[in-house]
């Protein structure tokens, strides 16, 4: 038995992703516009631009801490993720702190996530 059942299979190459438009795409075929359009047609969610401002070793062993500034408010948000966790970078596509691990675990081709990269994130749309 493999001990990899905890891995999120939605990042596995070939995983089928449903866009908010109903369209189905493979995870490796997604493009920036797919996320932007999905957020447009899905009520309540909006896309934020989240810029990586720092990448550090996490106090949690085997994790990295990513520091972002998020959205128009430039809010500071930090998250701890495993180094193979992919993020979608505007105009570039899937990127992770360890493209080698992402490729090994998910067969997903990635760029290396770097400070200055602008990732797609979501948040709740505020009602005006």
């Amino acid at each position: 038995a493999h001990s990899q059942s905890h891995l999120p299979s939605h990042f596995m190459k070939g995983a089928i992703i449903q866009l908010a438009t109903g369209e189905l795409k493979r995870v490796e075929d997604l493009q920036t516009q797919d996320f932007v359009r999905s957020a447009e047609v899905s009520g309540g969610l909006k896309i934020d631009s989240s810029t990586v401002v720092d990448i550090q070793e996490s106090p949690w062993q085997g994790f990295v801490t990513l520091h972002f500034v998020v959205g128009e408010q430039q809010s500071k948000v930090s998250i701890d993720v495993p180094p193979e966790h992919p993020f979608f970078v505007y105009g570039q596509g899937w990127s992770s702190c360890s493209p080698e691990r992402t490729n090994r675990l998910f067969s997903l081709s990635c760029h290396r996530l770097q400070v200055g990269d602008v990732c797609i994130s979501i948040s709740l749309q505020s009602l005006n």
Partner: peptide, 25 residues
């Protein structure tokens, strides 16, 4: 009728992080 084979379909928003500011600066 053929029983449809179950294929996992994941929603687009499961792929991107939900980054909501926890507190205003």
């Amino acid at each position: 009728n053929v029983e449809p084979r179950s294929v996992a379909v994941f929603p687009w928003h499961s792929l991107v992080p939900f980054l909501a500011p926890s507190q205003p600066d």
